[in-house]
């Protein structure tokens, strides 16, 4: 039995095993066979998603690792799901996955998967560049919504961790100007996106090390909004190396907040 990589997207499966609308879905009687997403972005609810088939599904810290027969380890896959007993539309437009469901699937190679993942990040880059191009014409003010504050939540919902990687790539290639990058970090700290929490934390910590004081300040503000205690040690290190007194004082305050 094999698994075919068709596409990738973030998905969350809740306790009842119901996830968001899947790509390429169609109602009964027409269109392509429905699929569910089983990817590295998959978050398993309190009930384990126990998909039984020839291979083993191992949910680990929100990732879904499929071990295929023969030991070919895939980071993520999309699974084509056929109509089976216990699986159906139930009058809704999205598939219902129940624990213990047996799925039929086809496999692809790791190279195919990596290619598809790169495609996802490339698409995310284009989407963020478009957002940034709109943002360039705006004058940002604290407490005032703008194209980034309005666009980032949807961007992360659509691209998930690929979106985070896309922003990092654009940053490294200096394709985001200082104002846009700083504002991006501010809103990355505020957005409600559990699927990208780790990635956002990483970007904000990267902000603390940037050569631009404006970006360092924005990274610190983002970390203050995020309120994740894991940042404390990094903030302490950044504080030791910070040359600008205003920033150093804010990092001291941030350390106190994170400590409490």
């Amino acid at each position: 039995m094999s698994v075919q990589v068709l596409e990738q997207e973030s998905a969350t499966v809740d306790e009842q095993g119901v996830g968001p609308p899947a790509l390429g879905t169609a109602g009964p009687g027409g269109g392509r066979a429905p699929w569910i997403l089983c990817s590295r972005h998959l978050h398993v609810g309190t009930a384990a998603l126990n998909v039984v088939w020839a291979e083993q599904v191992v949910p680990i810290e929100g990732k879904c690792r499929l071990v295929l027969a023969g030991g070919d380890l895939l980071k993520y896959v999309l699974v084509s799901v056929g109509s089976r007993t216990g699986f159906g539309w139930q009058g809704e437009s999205r598939p219902v996955v129940r624990p213990g469901l047996t799925l039929g699937c086809k496999a692809s190679t790791s190279a195919d998967i990596e290619r598809d993942r790169e495609l996802g990040v490339d698409q995310a880059e284009k989407a963020y560049l478009h957002l940034a191009s709109i943002a360039r014409d705006e004058v940002f003010e604290d407490g005032v919504l703008n194209s980034l504050s309005n666009g980032i939540p949807g961007f992360l919902l659509r691209f998930g961790p690929d979106g985070i990687e896309a922003i990092e790539r654009l940053w490294d290639c200096k394709r985001l100007d200082g104002e846009v990058l700083a504002e991006t970090l501010l809103w990355l700290g505020r957005v409600d996106s559990p699927a990208t929490l780790g990635g956002r934390l990483g970007l904000l910590l990267k902000g603390l090390r940037d050569r631009s004081p404006r970006v360092r300040d924005a990274g610190a503000l983002g970390l203050a909004s995020l309120g994740d205690g894991r940042a404390a040690e990094y903030v302490r290190q950044a504080r030791e190396q910070e040359s600008i007194p205003e920033l150093r004082a804010f990092l001291d305050e941030l350390l106190q907040e994170l400590g409490s």
């Binding site: 004058v139 940002f140 604290d142 104002e179 404006r214 970006v215 300040d217 924005a218 600008i244 205003e246």
Partner: peptide, 28 residues
Amino acid sequence: RTIKRGRWLEAPAGKPGRAPGDALLDLQ
């Protein structure tokens, strides 16, 4: 006057003591 402090943290290169151009965004 309210500002966005990140714009005011550093003088432009070679111009110590001078406000950065971006600071004018806070004085519109």
